[in-house]
Nucleic acid binder design. Structure first.
Lengths: 162, 162
DNA sequence: GCTCAGCAATTGATTGCTCAGTAATTGATC
DNA sequence: GATCAATTACTGAGCAATCAATTGCTGAGC
C-alpha cells in the first residue's frame, strides 16, 4: 500500500521492536488479570477490585487505622479519588471514617465488621483466581525471580524522579 | 483496639498473606509504569498511553489496516470504547477510518502520516522510560524469564474460561 | 505568638471508560 | 433462496477516575 513510504517502514520497525512488545506484555497481563479478579469479586462478593485493595490495607493491621493520604499513595490514586471511594465504601457499610487525633487535617479509615466479613470471602475468590492465572502458569523456580523483578521495578519507580 | 476480635485476626492474617502481597506488587508495578509513560507521552508528544498503543498496532504492518474489533480485543477495551477512542484520534489527525471491502460491518483503521510522525517521536519517549524503569532494574538473566512468565500468564488468561 | 508555605481532604467540572440497547451485515442451516 | 443467530460498530446513560480550585490545619522561621 504505502510500502514505498520510508517513514512507514521506520514506524513499522519501531512498532515491532522487542522493547515495545515486552512492555506491552506486562501491561496486557496485568490489565487482564485485574479484570478477571474484578469481575469475579463483583459477582461473588459485590465489591470491585479497588475496594478489595482498600480492605487489604484496612485489615492488615488489627490495631491501627490508615489515613486517606496513605491509601492514595499506596493505591496510586489522587486524594480526590480516595475521598469518593471511601464515600462509597461508607455507604456500602464496609468502612468508617475516624477523625485523626494527632493531625486534624487527616482522616483515618477503618473497616467495619461487615467490611471484614466481606473481605474474608473476597480473599478466597482472589486466591482462586490468582492461583490459577498468576501462580500456576509460571514455572516454580521462575516465580521467585518474577516477584523479585517486580520488586526491583517497583523500587526504581519509587526512587526515580522523572 | 479490637485485637480481641477473632475475625479481625483472621482478616489480618489473610491481608498479610504472600499471595495477596505478590499480586499487589504486579498490579502496582504495572499501574505506576503505565502512569509514568502516560505522563511522559502527554508532556512530550501530546498523546496518552492508550493512543500510543493504538498507533503501535496501526504502524506494525505497513500494508494492512486493523479493524476496530481487533483493536478492542487487543487493547482489552469494549467496542464502544474503541469507537470513541478512534473518534478522538481522527479528530486529532492521527488516524483515519476506512470501510472494509471484505466485511461491511467492519471498520478498518489506518494511521495518517502525522500519526506515524507522532508515533516515531513517542517511541523514543517510551523507550527511554521503559529502559529506565523496566529493563535496567531487572538483572539481565532474569529479564528473559520475566517476559517468559508474563507470556505464560497471558496465555493462561487467553485460554481460561472462568 | 504570628506569619506563611505546605499538606489533607473535599468539591465541581471534565475525561474516558463500561453497560445496555440498536441497526446493519454476515454466514450457517433448513 | 429465506431465516435467524451471531457479530460489528455506534449511541445514550452512568460511573469512577482526574484536574484544579478551595478550605482548614500544621509546623517552621522570624
Amino acid at each position: 500500500m504505502d510500502a514505498a513510504n520510508p517513514r512507514a517502514d521506520q514506524a513499522a520497525r519501531a512498532a515491532n521492536s522487542r522493547l515495545v512488545h515486552d512492555f506491552g506484555l506486562l501491561i496486557k497481563a496485568a490489565t487482564r488479570l485485574e479484570q478477571r479478579i474484578d469481575t469475579a469479586l463483583r459477582q461473588e462478593c459485590g465489591i470491585g477490585h479497588t475496594m478489595f485493595e482498600v480492605l487489604i490495607r484496612l485489615c492488615r493491621d488489627t490495631d491501627e487505622q490508615v489515613s486517606q493520604r496513605a491509601l492514595a499513595d499506596d493505591l496510586t490514586l489522587t486524594s480526590g479519588g480516595v475521598t469518593r471511594l471511601i464515600d462509597r465504601m461508607e455507604e456500602a457499610g464496609l468502612a468508617r471514617r475516624v477523625p485523626s487525633r494527632a493531625d486534624r487535617r487527616s482522616v483515618l479509615v477503618e473497616p467495619t465488621d461487615q467490611g471484614r466479613a466481606v473481605f474474608l470471602r473476597a480473599v478466597d475468590v482472589h486466591a482462586r483466581v490468582v492461583e490459577r492465572y498468576f501462580v500456576t502458569p509460571v514455572p516454580h523456580d521462575d516465580y521467585t525471580r518474577l516477584t523479585g523483578s517486580l520488586h526491583e521495578i517497583h523500587r526504581a519507580l519509587r526512587d526515580g524522579t522523572d
